[in-house]
Design a protein around this nucleic acid. Structure first.
Lengths: 136, 136
DNA sequence: CCTAATTCCTCTAGCGGCTAGAGGTTCAAG
DNA sequence: CTTGAACCTCTAGCCGCTAGAGGAATTAGG
């Protein structure tokens, strides 16, 4: 049986975060000691890895709750969650690419040693950027 | 003179958000009416556009405060802020690209009509992903 | 077996960047 | 002058944690 600290060390997830996941209904402990301390087994370890991985992928807690509520074989439900999130990620990448281009333009605006600064002006200037970012 | 609502309509920034920016020290109103309502001029409009643009670019409030504190010509200080943020954006794009690849793999895991679901398994499986994402 | 150090417990509050609502005042049009 | 829209301040909530207080349990060493 693993203590919450053991679980933390093995997964790299901080102790308060593990308790937070439990509070969110993602990771109930296998049991408690007489003194009320959480104990986890192998299943808990795997489940936390699952949660952590999904979080790293950017899935919100809510989506993870949906996934973990599935009994482990209900693909028809799991698949659209993954797909939805994939298109979400792609949208974010596109947005960031636009920002990257523009920030590069801004950062370049004063690389030389010209007279007046144009970096600040570039920050305020939305007209020059092709991509219509933001305002979401 | 523009009311806060006028400013909101012209920039697309919501009224409470404008008040929030003021609270954060980014956008002091030009003045107030006798009845204590905020009034803005052209400068306020430009400043809000600047703030909004910088926010769209992902700059944190703190960085924007640094920028707006510059008197408008201190490029030596503005430039590193832009550069720092550019590398930040690039890092985020790289991370997202890794996640995209992995989510695509996950979403593909059960596209067919095979027997067992692998989408869920793929969510929990960190070993198969080349990119070492997350854990930051 | 006892002590001391470490880990654990719960609870509350804070972060950033807003957003929403209550409850009251001021403004502008008719 | 009346109405209704827009304004004011203040407080609380969102997400996903993170940090700290104050106290109880566990574990290692003597």
């Amino acid at each position: 049986m693993l203590s919450i600290g053991d679980l933390s060390r093995r997964t790299g997830v901080k102790v308060p975060t593990i308790r937070y996941y439990e509070q969110m209904g993602l990771l109930p402990p296998e049991g408690r000691t007489e003194g009320n301390q959480r104990r986890y087994g192998h299943a808990g370890l795997e489940r936390l890895a699952f949660i952590r991985h999904a979080r790293d992928l950017g899935l919100p807690i809510e989506a993870i709750r949906e996934l973990t509520a599935l009994d482990g074989s209900d693909c028809a439900k799991a698949h659209p969650i993954a797909k939805r999130h994939l298109s979400d990620i792609r949208r974010r990448i596109e947005a960031l690419r636009g920002l990257e281009a523009e920030l590069a333009r801004i950062a370049a605006a004063c690389d030389g040693s010209e007279g007046a600064c144009r970096t600040l002006a570039a920050f305020g200037d939305h007209d020059r950027c092709e991509s219509s970012h933001g305002r979401s």
